[in-house]
């Protein structure tokens, strides 16, 4: 029995190493930021544990410093995190049959955990559910520990880490390529890049995700209708 968990952990760990680098850096920054805004380390610690959505935690600092507006906070969260809806739709099948772990898999479905769990080639002798569980758990462990340490030692960190955050960009480039090399039809890949870029130019950095999602959804839906009319089945 023990072996099953260990094997899944061992298979999952290498996939999470780049996330360790990226998460620690961003989470430390987040902890330092909260520290500088006058919050005790308990805030980044508990917020990273319960929210576990990187960019949203940064936004929450602003919410905590502003006027009390719970409805506004909820709406802003729904907007910023709307992309998770796409992850959920994509993981309906993959998370099937994972038992109670499924609740944690969905709770911890951040950009990185989703990307790895969707693309990873899980070896046949490794339990899929536990593999995805450990990917999610390790990622959250890195994130929470980084945020807490940043909150505690905030003002002491001073080595030159400029540019380290690129590790996340590099990771998504590699994940995109892995998907690209595997798929037969490249249209969705190009569509994601192109539509998001156009929306970024038109709507700006803070507002382009929602329009991008709508445009991607509309074009992919239209593509299916057109193909159906042409008499193709799947």
């Amino acid at each position: 029995m023990n072996n099953k968990y260990l094997r899944a952990l061992r298979a999952a760990f290498p996939y999470t190493v780049p996330i360790f680098a990226g998460f620690w850096f961003i989470a430390l920054t987040y902890g330092v930021y909260m520290n500088a805004e006058g919050f005790s380390f308990w805030y980044p610690c508990l917020m990273s544990l319960t929210i576990f959505a990187g960019s949203m935690e940064f936004v929450t600092v602003g919410l905590l410093l502003g006027q009390f507006d719970p409805v506004g906070a909820l709406l802003m969260t729904l907007m910023i995190n709307a992309r998770h809806l796409f992850y959920g739709i994509s993981m309906l099948d993959r998370y099937r049959g994972t038992g109670l772990k499924k609740l944690y898999l969905i709770f911890g479905m951040c950009d990185e955990s989703f990307s790895i769990n969707y693309t990873a080639d899980i070896p046949e002798d490794v339990d899929r559910g536990w593999f995805m569980f450990f990917v999610t758990l390790l990622n959250q462990l890195y994130w929470v520990s980084g945020a807490t340490l940043g909150g505690i030692f905030g003002s002491l960190i001073s080595f030159n880490t400029e540019g380290l955050d690129f590790v996340m960009t590099a990771m998504f480039v590699v994940i995109f390529m892995e998907q690209f090399l595997k798929e037969k039809n490249h249209i969705p890949s190009f569509l994601g890049l192109g539509v998001s870029l156009v929306c970024l130019i038109f709507f700006g950095a803070d507002r382009f995700i929602i329009p991008s999602m709508f445009a991607i959804l509309a074009i992919l839906s239209a593509a299916r209708l057109v193909r159906r009319k042409d008499g193709e089945t799947e």
Binding site: F172, I175, Q179, L191, L197, L200, A205, F208, S212
Partner: peptide
């Protein structure tokens, strides 16, 4: 799961990975 949602589950991830790259580069 409805066929249409299954279809979305297959074509959305590559598009989302593309979107995440742009998201990282947004600034």
């Amino acid at each position: 799961t409805p066929k249409f949602v299954q279809y979305l589950g297959k074509v959305l991830p590559p598009a989302v990975f593309g979107m995440l790259i742009i998201y990282c580069l947004k600034n």
